[in-house]
């Protein structure tokens, strides 16, 4: 890996940090750009650089920078009961990037990738919630998985549409290489 890739991943992390603070007022679930940004970065930077960007993003949060949604940060946020949803971004970003790289960057494939990403994050988060919160599976699923599936699917649909749209625009501007 050369310097340029490291710098790109660092900027990817910075973009996630910025977008995580932007509220998208989309009914019925207004949501922050955090999940969206992770999906976008994985779509645009590919599996390796995308995962690296997410790693840096999580490390920045762990170092106390308020980079997580709603200007929060700190190790507590990462290791707490809901930390799994953040750490889950890592495998999610990798798998999404890998899937898109192996297939093609179309709306249909991006939709599949985003749904995969959503479930990876949710499953990771729920298992973490069960362990860190010392809960039963029943409680962890009821509190950490089921209520988030429908909003998650809505977010995935949005991330798909925006991801491919923005990617195409960036390609037109020749800012990302066609092969990537």
């Amino acid at each position: 890996m050369n310097v340029k890739n490291y710098v790109l991943a660092a900027f990817g992390a910075a973009i996630i940090a910025v977008l995580a603070q932007v509220m998208l007022p989309v009914p019925p679930v207004p949501f922050t750009g955090q999940t969206l940004a992770v999906g976008l970065i994985a779509t645009i930077l590919g599996p390796r650089l995308g995962t690296l960007a997410v790693t840096v993003y999580l490390l920045l949060g762990a170092a106390g920078l308020p980079v997580f949604a709603g200007f929060t940060g700190g190790v507590a946020k990462l290791i707490g009961p809901t930390g799994g949803y953040l750490v889950g971004f890592l495998p999610a970003a990798y798998l999404m990037g890998l899937y898109l790289e192996k297939t093609s960057y179309t709306y249909v494939q991006a939709a599949v990738a985003n749904v995969i990403g959503m479930f990876v994050t949710l499953i990771f988060g729920t298992i973490w919630l069960k362990i860190a919160g010392d809960l039963s599976w029943e409680a962890a699923l009821a509190g950490g998985m089921i209520p988030f599936i429908i909003p998650g699917l809505i977010k995935a649909a949005l991330a798909t549409w925006l991801g491919i749209f923005v990617r195409n625009r960036l390609m037109q501007a020749k800012l990302i290489a066609l092969t990537n």
């Binding site: 490291y6 710098v7 660092a10 992390a13 910075a14 940090a17 932007v22 993003y57 920045l60 980079v67």
Partner: peptide, 21 residues
């Protein structure tokens, strides 16, 4: 070392990108 470097770069440019946004 690279991770620490990337963290420093992000640290430096997050305020810039915020401003930009």
């Amino acid at each position: 070392h690279e991770l620490a470097l990337m963290m420093s770069i992000s640290l430096r440019f997050i305020p810039t990108l915020m401003d930009e946004t």
